[in-house]
Write a protein that binds this DNA or RNA. Structure first.
Lengths: 369, 369
DNA sequence: ATTTAGCACTCACACCACGAGAGTGCTAAC
DNA sequence: GTTAGCACTCTCGTGGTGTGAGTGCTAAAT
């Protein structure tokens, strides 16, 4: 289904995409011939274009306008036509440098990643905090704040910390909850969700917090919505397609944390692959003029998050894909390092092999559909 | 400087503001007479308008258009003309209800407040997390994550929890840091920033974390940028003044956490007062078409944050002011309750007297300049 | 069989003229 | 002090018109 195009036709499509992405103006046969010094007449190009249009790779906004790639056209381009466009080593170095400057905390990394990605891609970036696929409890603290409210602080693997305030059924004293915390630590340090169960003969208060703890760990595992950080909204809104503000509300919608699952198809993310969703391919109809380029990052079998960009369908796919891939690699490395310092030194991230040899994190062809 | 207007002139100004806020269309003399059944002819109104224009309370977009209030006109309106527009008891009840439903954690409250305010005011809401004016340490935990990284969890007063990851100068073991944590707790529980000092004869590792702790408490007190939560961007962007997207970038700018101090004049916030900044009165020139209505909330002498809205200068000031005032009151109550459960049962928040008697948190005239 | 030149045709867009309508300022009468 | 009247101004919507980019088709050239 993808290789039906003759070489010349494919080349025309490639140029149409290239030119349109560049100029945001529908591209005509003559423009193409002039600008790219083709040894063909406009008429020939017109014929090829007509065929491309028959097969729905490109369309007409109206009769006497130039051609614009359709979703299908972009898809073919991404699949078969484009040539990779790596970040310069300068840019790569700068990005890595920034991470090494920053605090060594997961939340900070996520925020920084969003900022850097939005700059590198000149687009709206979107990064979710990593969820553990196998959450384990490291340590728990109970701190009495007032007569009947107790703060539970749970430290999980991968340096994640959760806090939750509880109102206890009956008044408690600090000594009592400290005692409970000690028992919980003794019993459940290193435990996963399924291993956290109420001990026989436990006091009411211990049972209460055991259940709370289990709830928390389970919540992490099943990943209530992960938090999302975005940055670079301005970049997208500055694009000419959003001159009319109607379209613009769609973008805002996409950015809204509440709709996250509508824009990122988490089930389809795969380790080491960059996923591209073009216009109408998105689940949500309001995204019909937007494309998403997203990848998974993390440590296989232990931790995963998503990182990607959202922009108009008219985007520089090669550049976006490379950039997202690179950032996913960087994030995976960081997580890997963090991960390596505890628990089993697991298999390295699929990016890692290449990342560590300098500046090029993974360039496997990736899943691109 | 404010009471130079004759009663009738003031009334005309009031109606112009009212009508323009409602319709977003420059208002003419005839419209005014018809719509508000004035016992005067359009010509008379025209005369009054001409005088108002001389004194710069209103302007002309162009010769044959109606009148539009200037910043100065809005200011006079807010200062002397408007009548309060309270939320209905229904709305108030709904808002309170939502808070009682929610988790009892500060961050959740802040987020919820932003959401509710943006809905109630149909506008862009903006809430900062409260900073303590007198931070005290309640409890500290040190947890070894790997050979040389230790997570410090500090519980402060008002149920605030901070975590920070440290790389220690030399490898440490959990038993050692636990020991250090115990000593720190013994020495500094309840201490403020100035009281946290390195003990004589302390080990290198203890000194290291003592300093870290002091840093953290000081950071809270001096309030590195407080976090800000926003909600309701769509509400503002839907306003007709943002039909052209140029203006729109200004709004996005205002929302950006990084520019926060430019939009909220923290120094000018006062306990119990609602501050209104109209158009050009804002510090930042990009805000010249936006107004800010903001109030302080918190517990006097202990905790303060800001809550407010941003919208076009053409906004329903009475409604906005009441709504912000009410939400500030609700937040103050919540903080007060939290505060009351620990430390000294301090003087109640200035809103509290009235809040607790049902549904009307404070309606003092407030500082309105 | 492919490519190209030529040509008629289409359509968006910019430009202009024009009239309607809303609004103004001024003056003179009430 | 108020109002009626009137001339004037300016925006906005409408419709006509021309230009230019671009197309599709046909027939000739390669």
């Amino acid at each position: 289904m993808t290789d039906l195009l003759t070489p010349r036709r494919a080349e025309v499509l490639r140029l149409v995409v290239h030119e349109y992405v560049d100029s945001a103006v529908p591209v005509g046969s003559k423009t193409l011939v002039n600008k790219y010094q083709l040894n063909l007449s406009p008429a020939t190009i017109r014929n090829e274009m007509a065929r491309l249009e028959d097969e729905e790779y490109i369309t007409h906004p109206h009769t006497s306008a130039g051609r614009v790639p359709s979703d299908r056209g972009y898809r073919y381009f991404v699949e078969a036509l484009m040539v990779d466009e790596e970040l310069s080593s300068d840019e790569k170095a700068r990005i890595r440098h920034q991470f090494h400057q920053a605090a060594r905390e997961v939340d900070d990394w996520v925020e920084l990643a969003a900022t850097l990605l939005s700059q590198a891609a000149n687009s709206l970036a979107l990064v979710t905090t990593p969820r553990s696929t196998r959450t384990r409890l490291k340590h728990v603290e109970l701190i009495e704040l007032s007569e009947r409210s107790v703060l539970l602080v749970a430290v999980l693997n991968e340096a994640r910390v959760l806090q939750k305030l509880f109102t206890t059924p009956e008044p408690v004293r600090q000594e009592v909850v400290t005692e409970v915390a000690n028992r919980l630590n003794a019993r459940f340090a290193g435990a996963g969700e399924s291993e956290i169960t109420v001990a026989e003969g436990a006091s009411a208060i211990e049972a209460f917090f055991t259940e709370a703890l289990q709830e928390i760990v389970r919540g992490e595992d099943e990943g209530e919505q992960p938090d999302t950080v975005t940055d670079g909204l301005q970049n997208v809104l500055a694009q000419p397609e959003f001159a009319r503000p109607a379209r613009l509300l769609d973008v805002l919608d996409a950015v809204d944390e509440r709709n996250l699952s509508r824009v990122i198809p988490f089930q389809r993310l795969q380790e080491g692959a960059v996923l591209v969703m073009i216009g109408g391919e998105n689940r949500d109809d309001s995204m019909r003029d937007l494309s998403v380029v997203v990848a998974e990052y993390g440590v296989p079998g232990a931790l995963r998050g998503a990182i990607g960009i959202v922009g108009p369908t008219r985007m520089r796919y090669p550049r976006m894909i490379s950039t997202v891939r690179y950032m996913a690699g960087v994030m995976s490395d960081l997580m890997g390092a963090l991960h390596g310092t505890e628990d089993t030194p697991d298999s390295p991230s699929p990016w890692q092999g290449e990342v560590s040899r300098g500046d090029s994190p993974g360039r496997g062809s990736g899943e691109r559909s």
